[in-house]
Amino acid sequence: MKPALKHFFDSMGAYLARPGPESLERLYSEHPGWDAPRERVALYGDFIRGHVRGALEKVFPLVRGAVGPDAWGALVEGYTLTRPARHHELNHLAEGFPAFLADAAASNGLAPFVPALARFEWTDFAVFTSEAPSPEPVARLTANPTLAVLEHPFRLCAYVRAKGALAKPEAGEEVALVWRHPEQLVTFYVEATPPALLVLKMAVEGLSMEDVAAATGMSVEALRSAVERCARDGLVLRPSASGG
């Protein structure tokens, strides 16, 4: 990129991070002879900030409710100053918000669970919009390609399921599984259980049901039931002609 063009985009980025009459005049003073109508540039700046705010409100409703309106407004303003409005897909303007909250948690007095909750909400959204194709038909038991695994020191699955009705999530180590159902096309999330992790291990490592039953002491019937339950929920995909 030519230096003059890079300077223009840098200065425009600075304006979009904090638009207003003073920053607008500063933008024009840095580029003498630029004759774009000020009203249109100001309107563009308002649109960009509105897109960032709208994306955050859409993707992080539980975080917004957990921190309250005043803190939320300050966080949105702080995040906007990091210039997130660069991605061509509007919803991805929210992608960096969990990392921003993790860095800003101490200075903003956020509850410790808030950054983890933001990461959960972003993952939920990213899984829902994932472009990963479902490999159909599968030749053997296969993990759902949209599966994401989260680890955090809070019981977030129960908190998210309650849709913010709880004051805060309980403390406690949790491994959460988040995936998009291949037929219903909605996201599922559960706290990982030993049977679900065992079925995923079978899928990832290509283990047979008989070998796993012999190694774990589980009956083939119990293992088959766990596979069927995970397949019904879309956590794993099975060959259509057999039970895996």
Rank of each mutant, 00 (worst) to 15 (best):
G20C: 08
V149H: 02
V59R: 03
L81C: 09
R229K: 14
F125P: 01
A231Q: 04
A94G: 06
E221S: 10
G206H: 07
H31P: 06
P37A: 12
E205D: 14
W34N: 13
G172R: 07
G68K: 08
V227K: 00
L235Q: 03
G73D: 10
A104K: 03
E77G: 07
G243I: 13
G164M: 06
C157P: 02
R18Y: 09
D211N: 10
G13P: 05
L141H: 06
M209V: 15
P115I: 04
D46R: 15
T187M: 05
E39S: 13
A126I: 08
A165W: 01
G50I: 02
V236H: 01
D103R: 14
C230K: 00
P133D: 11
A196P: 02
P19A: 09
S107L: 12
P112T: 08
F8E: 04
N91W: 14
G20L: 05
A102L: 09
A139E: 15
V175F: 05
A148D: 05
A213C: 09
N108Y: 07
V63K: 00
P195F: 07
D46T: 15
V190A: 12
A55E: 05
S29R: 15
L147W: 02
V160C: 02
Y189P: 00
E77D: 12
E30L: 13
G172Q: 10
H7G: 11
E121G: 03
A132Y: 02
V127N: 02
N144R: 02
E191N: 10
E173Q: 07
L5Q: 15
E131I: 05
L117P: 03
A71E: 11
D103L: 12
L90F: 13
A222N: 14
H181Y: 07
K168E: 14
W122M: 07
L197Y: 02
A4N: 12
A74C: 09
V127Q: 01
E191I: 04
A106C: 07
H92M: 12
G68M: 10
R26W: 04
L177Y: 00
S11R: 13
E131K: 13
G172K: 00
V76C: 09
P98Y: 01
F128D: 12
P3D: 09
G78K: 00
L62G: 02
E95G: 09
S11T: 15
P112H: 06
V41Y: 04
A111H: 03
